[in-house]
Design a protein around this nucleic acid. Structure first.
Length: 502
DNA sequence: TTCCGCCCAGGGGATAATAC
DNA sequence: GTATTATCCCCTGGGCGGAA
């Protein structure tokens, strides 16, 4: 008996052990791991939801949210608030880490961070990704026609990637049907489709074809290498990488000063210095510039220490010019620049002609002062001109028939909100106020239409001999959820009262 | 859900001060 | 004479709370 009991207990233990080791979600394999066209985490989430017959909203709020550790994220997601953090999902932020950790636990996979840029967080500062989904319609159609699993690769979402490498068309970022930008996460997210109107994203057959330039190809090469190798390394670069790399580079090339390095890289000395000392991180754009200049890719900069550098140092570079200019030549240059229609700063002139500011100031103090004075006044005029330009655009916006928000003005004209507000706070306030009034008016008109509609429905039902109950009226309304609003209930009551109902 | 206002962080460039 | 660094300014973009 004891033996039977013990064997039963053992069996039960095995079952419990089996049950406890099961994962909540199927272990679905991400597409393209180890290749440049690896799937994005948001695309994976969409596919996971579909395979489990779950809405993305339910997957996020009921399954993923409880696994998160960041409180505000957990709270927001449980309440169904997705948009606030959705643009971080595929990049290299703490939010990305939270999502990938949660999904790794839920699926029992250990490779989901490769669907994001988490492994390369040491070399990239922020702003690596676009804010919305981007896609190549031709690629999507090809995947669909070949009956392959539809997915959206991570590489499409990188800001520096503007075109499709295969079809050389500009990547789309707006649904061709509803004209909306599509955030990475949404309660109705579905790869290949618009989350708002449900349109197939390969439908737009108007393509903006632009051949890939040499620079585009280089950018592609860099990101493709990083994405393909994202899951293959055991060590990844940290925040000190760029500082260490530049110091190694200086040693290798026997460059003794940061200024010389900056000159070779054709970058600002102060900026390069801040990277060398580890005070700042270069942007992805600057990183690509450095890589291009020294003839390596970013991946080679990190992992291939012995690769030969192909440096193209311009023969007419600033340092080589410096030794040749005489005092009289400095005077000539300064005199020429004093009368220039486009004044330059003394700093720029000294760099262009290859002399030191101190030398010029010591020998020609009055000329130098005049140069600086001209430059400052030129700068002021330029700022003034820009101000007038922005003010004109704001006035133009105010004169248009349909008011737009200040945000829309900023997007349409490529002027940041801050700049617009600094230049003309009053005009900006007018734009905001006008738009507010416009929205109020639209709302007022909408309310009138709905009230009229309710009255008509009540009358029609009454004439047919049917009691116009709230349910009956709701059935006939276009928007079935309107009765949640107090003023709609009131309008219905008034309509009833006018017909003699109590 | 969208927009707005405010605050903050960080990158990049120009320049003056300082160090060697 | 030359190189480095501190500081300022400009710009962009994210975070957050509030209002509609």
């Amino acid at each position: 008996m004891n033996l039977i009991l013990s064997s039963l207990t053992d069996e039960q233990g095995k079952v419990e052990n089996f049950l406890s080791s099961r994962t909540e979600l199927y272990n679905i394999k991400p597409i393209g791991i180890g290749t440049p066209y690896v799937e994005s985490l948001s695309s994976y989430i969409s596919r996971i939801a579909e395979d489990h017959n779950l809405a993305v909203s339910a997957l996020l709020s009921k399954v993923i949210a409880p696994m998160l550790n960041i409180d505000y994220l957990k709270d927001q997601l449980s309440q169904g608030i997705i948009k606030d953090t959705s643009h971080f999902i595929n990049e290299n932020s703490p939010v990305t880490l939270e999502y990938s950790n949660a999904l790794e636990l839920l699926t029992s996979r250990d490779d989901l961070r490769s669907l994001t840029m988490l492994n390369w967080q040491g070399i990239f500062s922020k702003k690596l990704f676009s804010r919305y989904r981007k896609w190549c319609p031709i690629c999507l159609n090809k995947i669909k026609s070949n009956s392959k699993i539809i997915y959206e690769p991570l590489i499409w979402y990188i800001s520096d990637i503007k075109k499709c490498e295969v079809h050389e068309v500009v990547l789309h970022d707006k649904c061709s049907n509803c004209k909306r930008n599509l955030p990475f996460l949404h309660k109705k997210l579905m790869v290949g489709y618009c989350q708002y109107c449900g349109s197939w994203l390969g439908d737009n057959l108007v393509f903006n074809k632009k051949n890939l330039t040499e620079e585009d190809t280089f950018i592609y090469q860099n990101y493709k290498e990083l994405l393909a190798n994202s899951s293959k390394q055991s060590i990844y670069p940290t925040r000190v990488f760029i500082s260490n790399f530049l110091n190694r580079l200086m040693k290798k090339l026997d460059i003794r000063s940061v200024a010389k390095l900056a000159n070779i890289l054709e970058l600002n000395p102060g900026t390069v210095n801040s990277w060398v000392k580890g005070r700042r991180q270069p942007s992805s754009e600057s990183l690509l510039k450095i890589a291009r200049k020294i003839g390596l890719t970013i991946y080679e900069m990190i992992y291939d220490n012995n690769k030969k550098l192909v440096l193209e140092i311009k023969k007419d570079s600033y340092l080589q010019q410096q030794k040749s200019i005489s005092i009289s030549e400095i005077e000539d240059r300064l005199k020429k620049e004093v009368n220039s229609k486009e004044p330059k700063s003394l700093n720029r002139i000294s760099k262009e002609y290859g002399f030191y500011i101190d030398t010029a100031k010591r020998n020609f103090p009055i000329l130098c002062e005049k140069v600086t004075e001209n430059f400052n006044s030129y700068k002021e005029q330029k700022v003034k001109k820009r101000r007038i330009e922005i003010e004109e655009k704001l006035k133009d916006c105010l004169s248009k028939e349909t008011p737009i928000s200040l945000n829309q003005f900023s997007k349409d004209n490529g002027i940041t909100l801050k700049t617009a507000k600094t230049v003309s706070p009053n005009l900006c306030k007018k734009v905001v106020k006008r738009y507010e009034e416009y929205i109020h008016e639209l709302k007022r008109q909408r309310v009138q239409i709905i009230k009229r509609e309710i009255k008509e429905i009540v009358n029609t039902l009454h004439q047919k001999g049917i009691y116009p109950s709230s349910n009956k009226v709701q059935e006939n309304l276009e928007n079935k959820h309107l009765f949640r609003k107090e003023w709609v209930k009131q309008a219905w009551k008034e309509a009833l009262e006018s017909l003699g109902y109590n």
